[in-house]
């Protein structure tokens, strides 16, 4: 006789509890995000005016403004990407196209993993000794960008490497078979077909730069005044707070929470934008 019913009510209950736990945890994770975003927007949106975004803060008029921090953030993103991009792409090309010795490859990959695991506080210390003091750059956005370039190197290397690995062998053989040299093959065939990975890497690196605080706080300065970005001299000497640093200064040192939450809202918006861009880049640039 067939017994096709629940073997025991206890087992049924056990299964229901397991399922419930899964749903609850997922709901908690999703709920946390929604709660954080809503709370930040609730406290930050009211203070978010055009004037706040488009001017420097003025102690005389008693108005807050984060335009300098927006410029500083953009400057740091561009500068650190300019430094890290050739290094990172070059390293990835070496690893996937040239490296013969497994030992050397393992060493470089281990180094990249190590760099990825080092906490930003350590990068801050290194930036302070290496760039601010030893190279005499002092607390400047330049010193901050150089430090961030080291920090984001693994991100670029990994994204590029992933993409290079998916370039079909036939492309390479096709180019080499026509008598192209290795470098020519890389330049004309391999790199163009891994643009998606390089762009994704840049977006991810930009995300890390936008979110980074500790490094910039100690290597790039805290000023909220407008910097001079029009001359080489100014670019070299510019020193000030990015958005995250400004948030920290508003919250922790001035207890101006309204301004801090407004900056947080801007940062959340940027984070969403960067995440969207990263997933779009992955989809759109994938070669057909």
């Amino acid at each position: 006789m067939a017994r096709m019913r629940w073997p025991s009510p206890r087992r049924g209950l056990f299964n229901a509890v397991l399922r419930l736990l899964l749903w609850l945890s997922a709901a908690l994770t999703g709920g946390l995000l929604v709660a954080i975003v809503c709370y930040v927007c609730y406290r930050g949106l009211p203070g978010l005016s055009w004037q706040f975004l488009s001017s420097a803060e003025s102690i005389l008029q008693g108005t807050a403004g984060i335009l300098p921090s927006i410029f500083n953030t953009l400057y740091v993103i561009i500068l650190s990407l300019l430094i890290v991009l050739p290094l990172g792409v070059g390293a990835a090309v070496y690893l996937t196209e040239y490296a013969r010795s497994r030992r050397l490859t393992a060493m470089i990959e281990f180094a990249a993993e190590t760099l990825a695991g080092i906490p930003s506080m350590i990068y801050a210390l290194v930036g302070v000794i290496l760039f601010c003091t030893a190279l005499g750059l002092q607390k400047t956005l330049l010193a901050g960008s150089l430090t961030l370039a080291i920090m984001t190197l693994p991100t670029i290397v990994r994204a590029t490497q992933e993409s290079l690995k998916t370039v079909p062998k036939a492309y390479r053989e096709g180019a080499l078979g026509l008598g192209a040299g290795k470098w020519r093959m890389i330049r004309t065939v391999v790199l163009p077909s891994s643009v998606d990975g390089i762009v994704t890497g840049c977006i991810l690196a930009a995300g890390r730069v936008v979110g980074e605080t500790a490094v910039l706080m100690y290597t790039a300065g805290l000023s909220t005044a407008m910097q001079d970005f029009s001359t080489i001299q100014g670019l070299m000497k510019a020193s000030g707070s990015t958005l995250t640093v400004a948030l920290y200064v508003y919250a922790k040192e001035r207890a101006d929470f309204a301004a801090a939450f407004s900056v947080a809202t801007v940062l959340l918006f940027l984070t969403v934008l960067i995440n969207l861009a990263a997933s779009l880049a992955g989809k759109c640039l994938r070669r057909g």
Partner: peptide, 27 residues
């Protein structure tokens, strides 16, 4: 639902740590 949750998780990863600090501090 997985398609909604996945980007939510990567957004959670992307939020700057000072924002977590700020919310922790104020809530």
């Amino acid at each position: 639902l997985a398609g909604l949750l996945r980007p939510a998780v990567s957004l959670l990863a992307g939020i700057p740590s000072v924002v977590y600090g700020l919310v922790g501090m104020c809530v």
